[in-house]
């Protein structure tokens, strides 16, 4: 899986491009932020289940069978999936456009 020398030259070019650094830090920052949101809510919910299970069964309104637990979980299913949609939209649009520009420039310069 070793790269050829011309490939290596392109990699070195890309690496030096300040836009590459910017792309990586923006995309990584975005991905990290979303991951932290998911992990915090998910493990937060699990800790409520472990430490305060009574809260989970509390009804949202009198006479309704929609409890805090059911509502919170339905919210997580929808919200987490919404976050994947947000990430895919931004990564496949904005970030991939910058990526292909950076690669195109580097490949051109090397040739």
């Amino acid at each position: 899986m070793s790269s050829t020398s011309s490939q290596s030259a392109v990699y070195a070019r890309i690496r030096k491009n300040p836009r590459f650094t910017e792309l990586v830090s923006r995309r990584q920052g975005f991905a990290t932020l979303l991951s932290v949101i998911v992990l915090t809510i998910f493990y937060g919910f699990f800790m409520v289940v472990a430490f305060n299970p009574n809260l989970i069964g509390q009804r949202l309104s009198e006479g309704s069978y929609v409890t805090v637990g059911i509502a919170a979980e339905l919210f997580m299913f929808i919200f987490f999936w919404g976050l994947t949609a947000v990430y895919v939209k931004r990564a496949n649009g904005e970030f991939d456009e910058i990526t292909s520009e950076i690669v195109r420039d580097a490949a051109k310069e090397v040739k």
Partner: peptide, 18 residues
Amino acid sequence: GYIYMIAFFAGWPIILFL
């Protein structure tokens, strides 16, 4: 059962992001 299901689901967004 619902609690278990969310644990099975929550790995997917993380796989996507990371």
